Simulated scan of single mutants.
Amino acid sequence: MLGTRRDGPVSVLELQREDRRNALDLALCRAIGEAAAAEVDAGARVLVLTGQGSAFCAGADLDGVYGGEFLEALYGMLHGLTRLPVPVVAAVNGPAIGAGTQLVLACDLRVAAPTARFAVPTARNGMAVDAWTIRTLAATVGAGVANRVMLGAETLDHDAALAVGLVDRTGDVEDALAWAQEVAALAPLALAHNKLVLRGGDDETVAETFDACWASDDVREALAARAERRTPVFRGR
């Protein structure tokens, strides 16, 4: 259902419901949330999230989507990804529809194959997504495009998504992994602070992470590396 593997400081989480085009059900939502937290606790500095086969995620599994328990698991997982102190990279290997687009929005950086497509077709199925999804979409792609997606049920192909910032780079999972390795070499405390601010963290916590960066060994390591003309090695402390 969910595969995990480590590549040095990067953990790859692969949705493995290929027969259902990686649609999210209750068990998979819980597995993603639990595995992501466990990998970070085990020392992963960046996560890469991708799908098995030709689809990234076809959305919510309509056989079990209607219960409150599923919605709690789905939004708990999505919001949990945004609160992780490490960057999450989406390797969008194919269509990301409905909850698949929501999963992409919960990631911080996005690499997509030319076959990727994005849509939130609630206006076609009578369902709804939470305010966070709509506001995050609008903040990412702009109000005009968000209006077309949410009110006109428009689908964005790879090129359209790249043009409006929903996709950052074109590539496959290996390209996403290579980018993740580059990010993993950066200062972890600075990354955690930056992500917290970008994701709307509260002022008190932001102030704490700001102070932690300036008081860290990593900031001194960067200064020493510059003086010694070498690449800094950050420890996250």
Rank of each mutant, 00 (worst) to 15 (best):
M77V: 08
G53L: 01
R148G: 13
L162G: 10
C57K: 02
R110L: 00
A38N: 08
T155C: 10
F70I: 10
A73H: 02
L47Y: 04
I97C: 10
M77E: 00
T115L: 11
L156Y: 12
R148M: 08
T82G: 08
C107Y: 06
G76I: 07
A131I: 15
A153L: 01
L151M: 12
R110M: 01
R124W: 05
M150C: 08
D61C: 06
P95E: 13
R21I: 02
G152A: 03
D157N: 14
A113D: 14
R21C: 11
D157K: 03
D63H: 15
G144E: 15
C57M: 05
A163F: 14
L62H: 11
T82D: 12
R110A: 05
E34T: 12
C57E: 07
A131R: 15
T82A: 13
D61Q: 07
A38G: 11
A99W: 03
L78K: 06
C29W: 00
L137M: 07
L81W: 05
L28W: 01
T82R: 12
A123P: 09
V92A: 12
A128T: 12
R21A: 15
M127A: 15
V89M: 01
V149S: 08
A123V: 13
Q102R: 09
A90H: 11
V120M: 11
D41S: 15
G43S: 05
L137G: 09
A42E: 03
E39C: 06
G53N: 04
F118L: 11
A143Y: 13
P87N: 08
V120E: 10
A36C: 05
G94C: 14
A44R: 02
L78S: 05
P95R: 10
G64T: 13
N22T: 05
G51H: 12
F56L: 13
F70K: 09
C57I: 02
A60T: 08
A37N: 12
V111W: 00
A138V: 09
L151R: 15
G142V: 03
L109Q: 12
A113W: 00
L156N: 14
A146P: 02
A35R: 09
R83D: 10
E154C: 08
A91K: 11
V104T: 14
R30D: 13
A153Y: 01
V65M: 14
G142Y: 02
P87Q: 10
V120K: 01
Q52D: 13
E39L: 04
V46I: 13
A106W: 06
A42G: 02
D25E: 06
P95H: 11
R83H: 09
A73Q: 02
E154N: 04
S54H: 14
N93W: 08
R117F: 00
A112V: 07
R110D: 07
A96R: 11
N93F: 04
A60G: 09
L62D: 14
A106L: 07
L24F: 03
L47H: 02
P85R: 00
A139C: 10
T133F: 00
G64A: 14
E39N: 05
T50I: 03
G152S: 05
V145R: 13
L162N: 03
A131Y: 15
A38Y: 04
G53V: 06
C29A: 10
A44Q: 07
V46N: 07
V48L: 04
L78P: 03
A58T: 10
L156I: 01
T140F: 04
R45K: 12
G59P: 07
R83E: 15
A112R: 09
I97G: 03
V164E: 05
A73Y: 02
